[in-house]
């Protein structure tokens, strides 16, 4: 399964980059989100995945009795997800504002500032 996950992550990265390379602002944001998902899965997979044993210490015990999933990547991803959420919501509003002010979703048109050198 790890191979499939690895390919999935590769596809996520590729799709993210491809979307970022588009001219539409909305696609750009979607690309960033997909890329972020890819990065999260990457952390997850590289921390080695384990099925069916969450890193929660059994109620009747002080320590783990059996194999458990590595909690560190999970904590890192949680932090990363939340941070990405902050950035994404900001980005989405930025799209809205940019569209209102610049009147376009086309990134190629957002160059007025470069013309006045």
């Amino acid at each position: 399964m790890e191979v499939i996950l690895a390919i999935l992550i590769g596809v996520l990265y590729a799709a993210g980059i491809y979307m970022i390379l588009r001219r539409s602002l909305v696609k750009l944001i979607l690309g960033i989100i997909i890329l972020g998902n890819g990065a999260n899965l990457l952390i997850f997979l590289l921390g080695r995945v384990v099925k069916g044993s969450p890193p929660i210490i059994p109620a009747d015990s002080d320590v783990f009795q059996s194999v458990y999933a590595d909690p560190v990547p999970q904590a890192l991803i949680l932090t990363a997800i939340v941070i990405s959420f902050g950035l994404q919501s900001f980005a989405i509003i930025l799209v809205k504002r940019a569209y209102k002010v610049v009147k376009t979703d086309d990134l190629d048109e957002m160059n007025a500032i470069d013309k006045d050198s």
Binding site: G16, I20, L25, L28, I32, L35, G36, A39, L87, A91, L94, R97, A98, V101, V102, L107, M110, N111, A112, I113
Partner: peptide
């Protein structure tokens, strides 16, 4: 402002890319 928004889209994208 218009210039701010245009500039910040680039700033935003490339910095996020760096973070990723």
């Amino acid at each position: 402002e218009k210039a701010q928004l245009e500039g910040s889209v680039k700033y935003f994208t490339l910095n996020i890319l760096a973070s990723m």
